[in-house]
């Protein structure tokens, strides 16, 4: 959550660039696939099954990640976990300090979330403000039994008391860097890249 301004607006940083052109590769397609498979196992283990689960992604690309997790759970557990999307733009705390209103994406919560175990799925956990907004948005739809947070990358720099329950990879970063999670459906490839905000290669000092 809150990877960077560009990815939250839906314009994933590397989408317009040629493949591999910008940034340092932090996770390959294989790394991403393994991390999501592991997270799917952890979720089912911690919740003692998959029957009560709902996966809700934060656009974009959260809903796509939620569907991949659900596919993995269906594969090894034989349970079809409902997936959906929760848009956070109407719940942001920075609407008066931004230039221009962020794009609003449709919210699609599958069924009633009351008494369900909801796993929020997002690409990057950064300041924690998007996670806070997603919690507020989700609780407008009901009272889940639990809400858990799964992210592909935890890049640090939290500004709120929020932590992830499931993390693909911890990547220490500098504030001027961006973490771009690319998915085949949106960007033509699966990869996680670190770019510097200026658009060039990330500083070596920030490598994990």
């Amino acid at each position: 959550m809150g990877g960077n301004a560009a990815s939250e607006d839906g314009a994933i940083g590397t989408s317009a660039a040629p493949l591999g052109a910008a940034g340092r590769l932090a996770m390959s397609a294989e790394d991403l696939r393994r991390a999501l498979t592991r997270i799917a196992h952890e979720i089912v283990e911690r919740n003692k099954g998959a029957a009560n689960l709902v996966f809700v992604g934060v656009p974009r690309p959260g809903p796509l990640l939620a569907r991949r997790l659900a596919a993995a759970v269906a594969d090894f557990e034989g349970v079809a976990v409902p997936t959906g999307a929760v848009d956070i733009s109407l719940y942001r705390d920075d609407l008066t300090s931004r230039a221009g209103a962020p794009d609003v994406h449709p919210t699609d919560i599958p069924g009633d979330v009351t008494d369900r175990d909801v796993v929020l799925v997002d690409d990057v956990l950064y300041t924690g403000r998007s996670a806070r907004a997603a919690l507020d948005a989700l609780t407008d739809f009901g009272r889940p039994r639990t809400i858990q947070l799964a992210v592909v990358v935890d890049r640090g720099h939290r500004e709120l008391p929020i932590r992830a329950d499931y993390v693909g990879k911890n990547i220490p970063t500098a504030p001027h860097e961006n973490v771009d999670v690319s998915l085949t459906e949106l960007d033509g490839e699966d990869a996680v890249r670190i770019t510097s905000a200026a658009g060039g290669e990330a500083a070596d000092a920030a490598a994990p």
Partner: peptide
């Protein structure tokens, strides 16, 4: 029109109000 499409989903919720 695209933004209105998303706003319609707010009006279909149990709590028809966002804090925006």
């Amino acid at each position: 029109l695209d933004t209105a499409e998303a706003m319609r989903t707010v009006l279909e919720r149990p709590i028809r109000r966002a804090p925006t």
